[in-house]
């Protein structure tokens, strides 16, 4: 199969036959696999995130080879441009803390299992895929229903806004939920952080002791009020239904 996109870019691999195409596939497939392996095996998350970039970009090229320039573009923009950068930001923000635990304890035990998982699951999947005959493998784009429009932004836009309109809308709701989550979690984290810093700044030992003492008093108070016997003040007072004054 040929890639209209690459041909348009001046690369014409119709002439040297498909060998060029096979080489291209092999190169980027290898890059994707190596990228994935490094992501999984690197001890430093920073290295992992960077090799994820390699994996994503290689996949982008593979999408181009599948005649799907729009998905390739989205892949590079969304994944490489947004997701990986987000990861890198967080890793940079965490600084040293990212490496506090880097699987050294398990390293020796783990590798046989890792190999087994990869070989087992991968073997099954690849075997199934290679072993099954596809209904009607279309190799020439002109023969397909989509024809020459295949993979163009306009064709994808049309499918998106007709058949998949509902999902398109719901995806926006998913993004809204994620935004709420990001904000709420960020604020929660900040609030805790501030509280911690405040206590760290109360340098005098007396002050710290006072803080601890009051916390302990609170603890004792809750413990004492809780398990007294026999239970008289369980929540049954549907008739008296006052909210407790702690």
């Amino acid at each position: 199969m040929t890639s209209a996109f690459l041909v348009a870019g001046g690369i014409n691999f119709d002439v040297p036959g498909s060998i060029f195409e096979v080489a291209l596939f092999a190169l980027f497939a290898l890059a994707a696999v190596i990228g994935a392996i490094v992501v999984v095996s690197a001890s430093d998350p920073f290295v992992s995130a960077l090799s994820l970039l390699l994996n994503f970009v290689s996949l982008g090229v593979l999408y181009l080879m599948l005649d799907q320039p729009f998905v390739a573009l989205a892949q590079v923009l969304v994944y490489a441009g947004a997701v990986v950068v987000l990861f890198l930001f967080v890793i940079a923000y965490l600084g040293d803390r990212r490496e506090v635990f880097s699987d050294r304890r398990r390293a020796k035990l783990v590798w046989p299992f890792a190999l087994l998982t990869v070989l087992g699951l991968g073997g099954i999947l690849v075997g199934v895929i290679i072993g099954s005959d596809f209904p009607d493998t279309v190799s020439k784009l002109a023969d397909t229903a989509a024809g020459h429009d295949f993979g163009t932004p306009s064709a994808i836009g049309e499918t998106f806004l007709t058949d998949y309109l509902l999902e398109f809308e719901v995806t926006s709701l998913v993004l809204l939920v994620a935004a709420i989550g990001g904000i709420v979690l960020g604020l929660t984290g900040r609030a805790r952080h501030d509280r911690m810093r405040k206590l760290m700044q109360t340098r005098s030992a007396d002050q710290q002791k006072a803080v601890h003492a009051s916390a302990e008093a609170e603890l004792r108070r809750t413990r004492r009020t809780a398990p007294t016997a026999p239970r008289t003040d369980t929540a049954a007072d549907a008739d008296g239904g006052k909210e407790p004054a702690s």
């Binding site: 696999v33 994935a36 999984v40 994996n55 890792a114 990869v118 699951l121 991968g122 895929i129």
Partner: peptide, 10 residues
């Protein structure tokens, strides 16, 4: 399939 297995291992 290969990539999926690698990710699952991770």
């Amino acid at each position: 399939g290969v990539l999926f297995a690698i990710g699952a291992a991770g």
